[in-house]
Design a protein around this nucleic acid. Structure first.
Lengths: 225, 225
DNA sequence: CCTCGACGATCAGCAGACGCATGGTGGGAG
DNA sequence: CTCCCACCATGCGTCTGCTGATCGTCGAGG
């Protein structure tokens, strides 16, 4: 397992490096932001351990840049900040975990292993199908650069369909995940809401973004219609 | 997005439920370990938020049981313990994240979103015979790159034949698997539906993709006709 | 090679299921 | 009170699944 540590404080960097090497990892170290981003771009690591406060380029920007380039390497953030919004921001930018200094080495190890176990699947913080995008954290939907206003129900429905983009999703599934497990009403609500959604997210002269799969349910076009 | 909360303290459970519902999630609650495990087994959640100290069955055991059954639903653990080894244990058992009480709701949300990003996606499983492909998850059939629209019955018939491509499949088998085990009607339906299929999936100037084996049934050509 | 019977293919038609639009109701927030 | 959101009910047009009848084809035996 090959790791990159991005940490500007030399003593911390060295301590981490020693500890992780002792645990059997292959470890490289960058002492500032730009170097860290450069190394992360040029090499393929199994995970990155990254400080937030870095000279030259903050940890936030590094994660943002990597994710924008479709680089889904797991990133574990270290930070002296313990504000809840700092943590939430880092995670919503695409970090995989967040540890507040001072932290225990055992915990770091466990979290590192948890993050490594998940591997490098694409897990964008913002869902996209063609030029249709949905940001779960900001609860925002856009077609290109145009923001689309959705009601809460419409939003949940679209989010669920986008997380399963390309799959045919049955109405029972939709009812369970977007409405409620013991929802008793008519499945007709789904049809109504798909109708609402289409009016808002479809573009003229294109096919529906939400396709009907007769007898099976609905499918969100991977290219967003 | 459908969540399960397993938490024995009623006030905490209710608070979480309210907050998460307000964020647009579909939420169910279990107030003890056995109920939680039961619900997790019977239903399909997008994520589980699980306390560790539970009456009847600890959170550890729940995760362990689910993972042993190949259930990889993302689990976010909550705990009042702050011993570092507890945390390491939970993560190594297959939890996906860990929060120590008291925690910030904003952070819980962000971590939940991070955990939801990866989802559970065993993708491939696309059946192919020559350039004829069938994707059961997407409920899509194509000849080359051209999408072919099939009705539900046509689709299940083709799926069954493709899963047994190259075999001669008897009409009794087809009736059992595509129709119903105790279907009483005329076996002529099969002939009718094979006809429908051929019209849609055969290419001109080629032999039938679904070949007739006189007196025995039908066989799907391995090369797709 | 021809005949005949059994098996398979095709067709038209119908009943019911399905999906969609629309307008209406009710309840909660401001 | 007003607005908006979630949901319900109705009606319509289309599609699907199936039936029953007819037509075509294969192949064994003479």
């Amino acid at each position: 397992m090959r790791l990159l540590i991005v940490e500007d404080e030399p003593r911390m960097a060295t301590a981490l490096q020693r500890g992780l090497i002792a645990e059997g990892f292959t470890v490289e170290v960058a002492l500032n932001g730009p170097d860290g981003l450069h190394l992360a771009r040029e090499n393929s690591y199994d995970a990155i351990v990254c400080d937030i406060m870095l000279p030259g380029l903050s940890g936030y920007r590094i994660i943002e840049a990597l994710r924008a380039e479709q680089n889904w390497v797991p990133v574990l953030v270290l930070s002296a900040k313990d504000g809840e919004y700092d943590e939430a921001d880092a995670l919503d930018l695409g970090a995989d975990d967040y540890l507040v200094k001072p932290f225990s080495f055992v915990v770091l190890l466990a979290r590192l292993r948890a993050v490594l176990r998940r591997g490098v699947r694409p897990r964008p913080a913002i869902l996209a199908c063609g030029d249709l995008t949905l940001d779960p954290a900001a609860r925002a939907v856009r077609r290109g650069n145009v923001e689309i206003e959705l009601t809460p129900r419409e939003f949940s429905l679209l989010e669920y369909l986008m997380r399963r983009a390309g799959d045919a999703v049955s109405k029972a599934d939709i009812l369970h995940h977007v409405w409620d497990a013991h929802y008793e009403g008519d499945a007709n609500v789904i049809e109504v809401y798909v109708g609402y959604l289409r009016r808002k997210i479809d573009q003229p002269f294109n096919r529906h973004a939400v396709q009907t799969v007769r007898g099976a349910g609905y499918r969100l076009a991977v290219d967003g219609g």
